[in-house]
Design a binder for these strands. Sequence first.
DNA 1: CGTTTTGGTTAGCTTTGACTAATTATATAA
DNA 2: TTATATAATTAGTCAAAGCTAACCAAAACG
Lengths: 124, 124
Amino acid sequence: MEKKLTESIEDYIETIYLESQKHGKGVRITDVALELKVSKASANDAVRKLKELGYVEHERYGQIYLTETGKDRAVKVYEKHRLITEFLVKSLDVSLPNAEKDACGIEHIISEETFEKMKAYLDQ
Amino acid sequence: MEKKLTESIEDYIETIYLESQKHGKGVRITDVALELKVSKASANDAVRKLKELGYVEHERYGQIYLTETGKDRAVKVYEKHRLITEFLVKSLDVSLPNAEKDACGIEHIISEETFEKMKAYLDQ
DNA sequence: CGTTTTGGTTAGCTTTGACTAATTATATAA
DNA sequence: TTATATAATTAGTCAAAGCTAACCAAAACG
């Protein structure tokens, strides 16, 4: 069983993943800070934690890269996010911005069962 | 617009409401602590905060009573909880324990739009 | 090539929400 | 009515997650 991450750390890893996809390269502290609307100091703290957890590589003043484990982890978080958003839009006709916003919170707390059932609903 | 409460405070007010309904009388620090599985010290802190916010009445060593405002607030939180649980059960066939658990997290973060649409779904 | 701008880091502080341990009240029972 | 048990409070600690301000490194420009 995977170690549970805090919500905050899940957000950071997800953001690093999305930014690296977007630009096809390593990500900077500043990108993360801007994207999550936190100070660079906070982004820096989080990256240090992610490094300790073995999810990213990062050296002083350098770019941030996800490790294999980190990427696996990020993809899972992001897929959850995507799927919940889709569920809210398709099943309830929630507007995309609100669906995104809600998914962003729900992704961290939902049970495996509910998640699987949303998946099943969308697979029909 | 109502002042936003923290998730933790919403849980406390909801618990006080449910316990007072269950026994038809004032609630004790110990009841709250047991129900939420926190220490009595934590329950005590929370009750102090709720008192400062004007949501409960409580004097040293005494019972806790919701004020009118407190009760209104608690009912809203609880209704949200109930409705989300029902939505998960009826729309996705999630088991009651998981639906309860998920609702407990979702109730604090969901947008007004999504909530209204769940309500509409259940009203059909 | 030196200076300015941008980016990153560090130190130290704040808040929230929990905890334990020790203490003080109240209630119950011998 | 005194002793014991239960309940509540207080003081002090901790971790998470943010912040600002000050400082240091690297890059870009003139």
